[in-house]
Amino acid sequence: RDLPAQVNRDYLLMDATTPEKDVTSYNNFYEFGLDKSDPSRYAGKMVTDPWSVRVEGEVGKPGTFGLEELLALEPMQERVYRLRCVEGWSMVIPWVGYSLASLLKKVEPTGNAKYVEFVTDMQPDVMPGLRSRVLEWPYREALRMDEAMHPLTLLTFGLYGKVLPNQNGAPVRLVVPWKYGFKSAKSIVAIRVTEQQPTPSWVAVAPQEYGFYANVNPEVRHPRWSQATERRIGEGGFFTPRRPTLMFNGYADQVASLYSGMDLAKNY
């Protein structure tokens, strides 16, 4: 199904976009299995209609938003973002959505609102991955309030001009382009605004490998591999070299100020 959107020229990239076939067939969505091909193979059975998102916690106006309501909240924009996976590969994807800030402002965060947590749906009948103990379920990710309110942070409903395929996190997901891909929670059913820093699923199982911030940073290596370069999916052939990874995935001008004075090697 098409999802019409206005191209937002502030968020265009010179990089060639990754072929749609690759974007929709090479995914990490562990609810469906650990293999990159598992999500496109199994996510078709996920039920995405009806869908609603609970927004709760430190907000003046908590509530449950139906998908139609969310779709109508703001005009849809198309934005082309780089996506950098912590595993060392990257894509360039035209997403469709609007800034998460629009939704957060609507629920009126209180003075105690310091963090925002995102919770992914659990559908045990169709998600074989939930039986594995690789992660703590449901999948949870979180941002600091200023990160969540940043205009780059996209509440996302589509890609390539169509509604999100299930394997890409239908019907609504987050896209935080300056952080490693796992920060961008898929198939979101709850958004919790909190005072205490939440513990994301990856931080809970492997704190030495995955930090709360997970900003793309070529200088801070993963404990088991360098993050200095990346392989751009769909680009060139067998002799195309890896690309150098950019600080904050190339969004340093927009987001570096969020972390001024912070030791990024410590807050990885």
């Binding site: 076939k21 067939s25 090479y26 590969w89």
Partner: peptide
């Protein structure tokens, strides 16, 4: 030949 080496053939 049949385009089956996934989106990341190198890996």
């Amino acid at each position: 030949w049949t385009d089956g080496l996934t989106a990341n053939p190198v890996e």
